[in-house]
């Protein structure tokens, strides 16, 4: 039986690791090199590395941390931030990423998803969808790290991207990001039911109960978290053991 995954997300900015609330108010949370080594020692199921400044600064910082992660940690790595071309994807894969996350370009250049799936296989293309409620409370997809609204419905967009060849969807609630009040279970479940590829819920995890809720009560395959592990003494080992006690199938290491 396939196990549920808990995936730490490392946001990178200027070569440091940061974490914000609702995609702003970023706080420094330390060295990404150290974090990668610690998560590896704790046998995290997978890591997501996102450079929120790659659009302006290029991929140098992200490539450096990927090289280190690939050389020292023998775990699945997803990399993203400012990915707009097949060359970007190829470069990140060669640096050690197993999967590449495409976000803004899923709206501005959706053909990239199709081309990338054909060139590299759909299993290594992750579509990132950031969404937040508009003034009427209707959820819409936002792009450019939450700076630009679109008129797209997150569920329809997810379906479209899966049809184009995305092998996985990372679904992130901007309203809940960094707030530690729990995931948007309703949207996570709606998207997971709308597509036939795995969905990772992101945005809002503040305690282990939130992880259990999403993994037991929705159809998502995995949960992503950042603040939960950054602030406080929680880690993937404790998360795994809590979730196992809740009857959720987690990975056996030996």
């Amino acid at each position: 039986m396939l196990k549920k995954r808990v995936i730490p997300v490392l946001l990178l900015r200027d070569g440091r690791m940061v974490k914000g609330k609702r995609f702003s108010d970023y706080r420094d949370t330390g060295s990404p090199q150290t974090a990668v080594r610690i998560y590896s020692a704790q046998d995290a199921d997978e890591l997501v590395l996102l450079d929120i400044q790659a659009t302006t600064n290029g991929h140098r910082a992200l490539l450096d941390i990927l090289h280190l992660a690939a050389e020292e940690c023998f775990m699945p790595l997803t990399a993203g931030g400012g990915v707009t071309s097949l060359d970007n994807i190829r470069e990140l894969l060669l640096a050690g990423a197993d999967k590449v996350l495409v976000n803004t370009a899923t709206v501005t250049r959706p053909s990239l998803i199709k081309q990338a799936a054909e060139s590299f296989g759909n299993q290594c293309i992750v579509a990132g969808i950031d969404y937040r409620a508009d003034d009427n409370g209707v959820p819409k997809v936002w792009i450019r790290s939450g700076h630009e609204p679109t008129s797209l419905d997150p569920v329809d967009h997810a379906r479209h991207l899966a049809d184009l060849g995305a092998g996985e969807i990372l679904l992130n609630s901007i309203d809940r990001d960094g707030m530690m009040g729990g995931y948007d279970l309703k949207m996570a479940d709606a998207v997971a039911h709308a597509v036939s590829v795995p969905v990772i819920a992101s945005g809002g995890a503040g305690n282990f109960m939130h992880l259990a809720e999403a993994l037991s009560n929705t159809a998502v395959s995995a949960v992503a978290c950042a603040s939960l592990f950054h602030f406080g003494d929680n880690n993937p080992i404790r998360a795994r053991s809590y979730l196992r006690n809740q009857g959720i199938q987690m990975r056996n290491l030996k």
């Binding site: 396939l2 199921d45 795995p198 995995a222």
Partner: peptide, 12 residues
């Protein structure tokens, strides 16, 4: 059982 494809994650 309509499980997802690709098969992604940890399995025995």
């Amino acid at each position: 059982d309509h499980l997802n494809v690709p098969h992604v994650g940890w399995n025995r």
